[in-house]
Structure formats: C-alpha cells, structure tokens
C-alpha cells in the first residue's frame, strides 16, 4: 500500500458501517424490493397524468436524511424523476 492509497482509500470497517446504515434503514422501514417496485409504479402512474417522464432514468430509494426537528437521522423517500415533456 503506498502512502497515497492511505489517503484515498476508505477503510473496510467504515465501508461496512456505511453499507449497514443504509441497509438497515430499508430493513426497518420493512420495504421489500417488491413493495418498492409497487410504490415506483404507482408514482409513475400519477405523474404520467400530467407530464411525460423518463421511466428508464427513474430512481426511487429509501435513505436517511437529517430531520428538521434535530433528532438525528430519519428515513426518507427520495425520488429522482427525469421529465421529458410537460403536458398541457
């Protein structure tokens, strides 16, 4: 391992911790991949009424975010939905 690597690389312990934190949020929210898929499809259905969206580029995840109340991290649904065209 070169000196440069020490600054570049994240230790495997902190990689494990970060992975677990994300994983447990979705475990605790009890959202199976099937449920996530259903949520995704419903969101597409609703938005498709008003605008044309890029279903391929759509990304929906449950992650954590700093709560406004200041009581640590809370689960949040984050959706990134590329719009192709707004219907009139």
């Amino acid at each position: 391992m070169s000196l440069l690597d020490i600054f570049k690389k994240k230790s495997s312990g902190s990689v494990a911790k970060d992975r677990l934190k994300l994983l447990l949020v979705s475990d605790r929210a009890s959202c199976s991949p099937e449920v996530m898929e259903m949520i995704k499809n419903d969101i597409i259905k609703v938005i498709a009424k008003y605008m044309e969206i890029d279903c391929e580029g759509l990304d929906i995840q449950i992650t954590t975010t700093e709560s406004d109340g200041g009581n640590g991290n809370v689960p949040a649904l984050v959706a990134n939905i590329p719009i192709k065209e707004v219907k009139h």
Partner: peptide, 17 residues
Amino acid sequence: DMVKKGDMMSIEDVVDI
C-alpha cells in the same frame, strides 16, 4: 488489531448502528 487498522467495525460502531 483489525479495529485499529480500520478493517473491523469497532464496539462504538456496532452500538451506534
């Protein structure tokens, strides 16, 4: 020894999670 090198989660990490 592994915790010190950063290759194992520490007690604090596990309790935190």
